[in-house]
């Protein structure tokens, strides 16, 4: 009587155990990962306002987003005493063909702003040339005007801020200090820029 009952419990445990293993299906290959919000590339296109054939492009490329591979950044060479129209574009090149993230930024223009930080010694000035269509005349920063003066070298840092406080002091003029929000793009190290006579 005594151990007989015990031995009846053991097969029960085995049945339970095999049930647990059985709920396990064989094809467990996970679907490919599509990092939808990834931005790998920032492209800047400088078009000389005096000469439409004078076009300078530069890109900042980070193949793995937040992965360990460091970004690659192009140098920019501009002419002195010139005015350039500058457009900014963002891409996700993980996808084929590359996804144009600029469209998403434009669609959510009120929630984004691009800031341009020019190093002190570089003779380059920036002005916004677009509007976020929010009715307050606030800029977005996909279209810009840059003016060069004398020959110099320095850097240009491009920062895309998500959810900035556009009404804060100085923000609509391109001053990031009071903007808050979080960067979706921050080109660190910045673009090296040379202005030649």
């Amino acid at each position: 009587m005594k151990f007989y009952n015990l031995f009846r419990l053991v097969p029960m445990a085995v049945i339970f155990g095999s049930l647990m293993m059985a709920c396990d299906n064989d094809d467990d290959t996970p679907p490919p990962i599509n990092e939808e919000e990834l931005i790998t590339t920032v492209n800047l296109v400088f078009t000389n306002n005096a000469d439409a054939t004078d076009v300078v492009t530069a890109s900042y490329f980070d193949e793995d987003g937040t992965g360990p591979t460091a970004p690659v950044v192009d140098a920019i060479v501009l002419k002195a005493n010139s005015s350039y129209s500058v457009s900014v574009a963002f891409f996700n090149e993980e996808e084929t063909p590359a996804e144009n993230v600029t469209l998403e930024v434009r669609k959510e223009a009120k929630e984004h702003q691009i800031f341009f930080e020019v190093s002190d010694n570089l003779m380059l000035s920036h002005a916004y040339a677009d509007d976020d269509d929010g009715g307050n005349g606030n800029p977005l920063g996909l279209e810009n005007t840059f003016k060069t003066t004398s020959a110099s070298t320095g850097t240009l840092r491009v920062i895309l801020i998500h959810l900035p406080n556009k009404g804060a002091d100085g923000v609509s003029d391109g001053n990031r200090a009071n903007a808050g929000g979080e960067p979706d793009v921050d080109t660190t190290p910045p673009f090296p820029v040379t202005i030649r006579q």
Binding site: V42, D62, T66, P71, T188
Partner: peptide, 9 residues
């Protein structure tokens, strides 16, 4: 810290 397109992390 790690450098990414969104700056350092």
């Amino acid at each position: 810290t790690r450098l990414t397109i969104r700056g350092f992390f």
